[in-house]
Amino acid sequence: MTGLVPTAARPSFNTGHLLRTLLPALSMTLILLAIAWLNPRAISYFGFSLMLNLAIPIALATVAQMFVITINELDLSIGTFVGFVGCVTATWLHDAPVFGVLVLVASVGVYAGLGALIHLRNLPPIVVTLGMSFVWQGLAILVLPKPGGAAPDWLKAFMGFQTPFVPFPIIAAVVIGLVVHFGLMRSSYGAVLRGAGGNQQAIGRAGWSLLKTKVVMFALTGTFGVISGMALIGITTSGDANIGNGYTLLSIAGVILGGGEFVGGRVSPIGAVIGALTLALAASPLLTFMHIPPDWQVAANGVILITVLAARALIGRKGA
């Protein structure tokens, strides 16, 4: 009779795996519940529009970071790059649209070139991108020495669009998540790109160009960085060379919160978007409601990150 109990009590691998997959959504739900409990009025159309105001640029930067993390690299320059794009958007894209577009396209080209350089010379991505963070910041200051400029009207109109029933940031987040999910997780070349992070040698021996995968992934990072910077300026309506500096750390944290891993090409686009939304929600609304002094708001990000990682470690141990 008692012999039947152990088999039933033994956790199967699938439960652990499922929990792991659901962890990002679970943590966001917890944050939402906390907000709803502290301030029920926040759970409304306008509440979400306000709370998630800055979530879209963060989600885009997180997805940008996710592309390089897929191939086991890291971009420590994404924050200053978003700032640079913001400065170009608030100046050249407004005053001379054709030139502005050319500059932004060229900056994506620089990203693609970096991918090639890192691959061909076997360079440490941390140092290269840290160096590039100075380059982007320097360029941003040269383009826009003092905070100011103006966002193009069409961009302001687009970012301020009021959708019926569901707030715009939520729709945008769903669209971003699904587009990247189908591109990277469901397409055949997406599998090759992830494979370049999982098993480089296998992808190389199967006849795929590793150089091309790196170039494509870095170009994607640059592209989403550009969209992130433009979205940010569409919301803030003016530029500042330092506007994106915090995004580097936020984007890495978002990818990891979303269930991504640093090596092995194991990432999740939808998870990354959820991770970014969680950080955006937790960053200020929750803390303001909880009366946490501004001194400790940065620490809250760290605590959330550590808590989620601890939960993941716990689940991983049970599931193994």
Binding site: I252, V298, N301, G302, L305, L309, R312, A313, G316
Partner: peptide
């Protein structure tokens, strides 16, 4: 937490 040092030191730097 069995996490990469980059993430560990990043989280702790926030705190």
């Amino acid at each position: 937490l069995r996490i990469p040092p980059i993430i560990a030191t990043l989280s702790s730097s926030f705190i």
